[in-house]
């Protein structure tokens, strides 16, 4: 009896088809890329912060300290993973795993170049949104399970903040979607071949940028881990590799947010002379540089100001922008 003749295997085989090999290779590349990219971004952040602050940043390990984060990762791996006595042990163990998986999954649909995309999906944008929303679940789990007041305050803040900022984020993306009539990342990129969408949608781009900064809990919206108030917020009790996973997820989410920004507003892999991959990576890292720059320039908002800003400014402006886009498109 041929095993491939079984109905459900046939179905799976038909679904994956000859893409199976490509998918496996793609996933392997992602699994290698995510930690290396995060390590590189941590180094970039420390270096940029250092130069902004009139100091050189890490210099000791490797040329200009480029291996510093790898050494830090080795140190974190060798550290004991302490679980607080009164913590909810299962949730405490689960939270770092829950935060890292959606971050990795989102990479599947990111178009690095016309050819380099692990899986083309007709709901690519929605997949990223739905998976990155899971981050907040993990933060709440971590905060609750730690049984620490600072962690719990941080987690509660995270939930309110992420719910509030997801709405303007989706609304600003929606104005791009109704321009392209597609959720496909590749089609959105292809639609920007002469002019980038930031020219048509500057307001949406600004809203998108602010909302993603808030969604990824970066300064000035880093109330979730506000150091001067909450020690380190939801991951106060985490040590060793578990802490490193939260760190890894933060930088991976930053990369995903920046790639979304590049795809939606900056033409993805479009650009003259160089191959698409180079253009895409350059755009993403330029956006990440801006996020880092903002972090080391601005003070932190207060929580009620943050919420007021989302509900009273961002959402009305995003709605208005969406309406104007729809009217203009209908009129054309």
């Amino acid at each position: 009896m041929n095993i491939t003749q079984l109905p459900f295997i046939k179905e799976i085989y038909g679904f994956l088809g000859h893409d199976l090999v490509a998918a496996v290779i793609g996933i392997l590349i992602i699994l290698v890329f995510v930690p290396l990219n995060s390590a590189f971004l941590v180094w970039v952040e420390r270096k940029v912060a250092g130069h902004i602050q009139l100091r050189p940043g890490p210099m000791e390990v490797g040329p200009h300290g480029i291996l510093q984060t790898l050494i830090d990762a080795v140190k974190l791996m060798s550290k004991e993973m302490i679980t607080p006595k009164l913590a909810d042990k299962f949730l405490f163990w689960l939270a770092p795993i829950v935060i890292i998986i959606p971050a990795i999954v989102c990479f599947v649909v990111i178009p690095f170049s016309p050819l380099m995309q692990v899986r083309e999906m007709n709901v690519g944008i929605l997949l990223i949104f739905s998976f990155s929303s899971l981050t907040v679940l993990s933060i709440l789990m971590a905060g609750w399970a730690s049984n620490n007041k600072y962690a719990l305050i941080g987690a509660v803040r995270a939930v309110a903040q992420n719910v509030a900022y997801e709405i303007p984020l989706l609304l600003s993306t929606m104005s791009i979607i109704i321009m392209t009539n597609s959720f496909k990342m590749s089609e959105i990129t292809a639609a920007q071949s002469p002019v980038w969408f930031i020219v048509y949608q500057p307001v949406a781009a600004i809203i998108f940028f602010i909302s993603t900064t808030a969604e990824t809990n970066r300064a000035p919206f880093d109330l979730v881990e506000a150091e001067s108030e909450l020690v380190s917020g939801f991951h106060t009790e985490y040590t060793g590799m578990r802490f490193a996973l939260f760190f890894l997820a933060e930088y991976t989410n930053m990369f995903i947010a920046a790639s979304m920004g590049a795809v939606l507003f900056f033409g993805g892999w479009h650009g003259p002379f160089f191959p698409g991959l180079i253009w895409f990576v350059v755009k993403v890292y330029a956006l990440i540089f801006v996020i880092i720059w903002v972090r080391w320039t601005f003070p932190r908002l207060r929580f009620d100001q943050l919420m007021n800003f989302a509900w009273k400014v961002m959402i009305p402006v995003a709605l208005l922008n969406l309406m104007i886009t729809a009217i203009v498109l209908k009129a054309l």
Binding site: A49, I52, Q53, R55, A226, T297
Partner: peptide, 16 residues
């Protein structure tokens, strides 16, 4: 004090 509000960079300028 400015660092307590969340801006880290002025702290190092002041220290300079």
């Amino acid at each position: 004090f400015v660092m307590d509000i969340g801006a880290f960079t002025p702290f190092l300028y002041g220290f300079d």
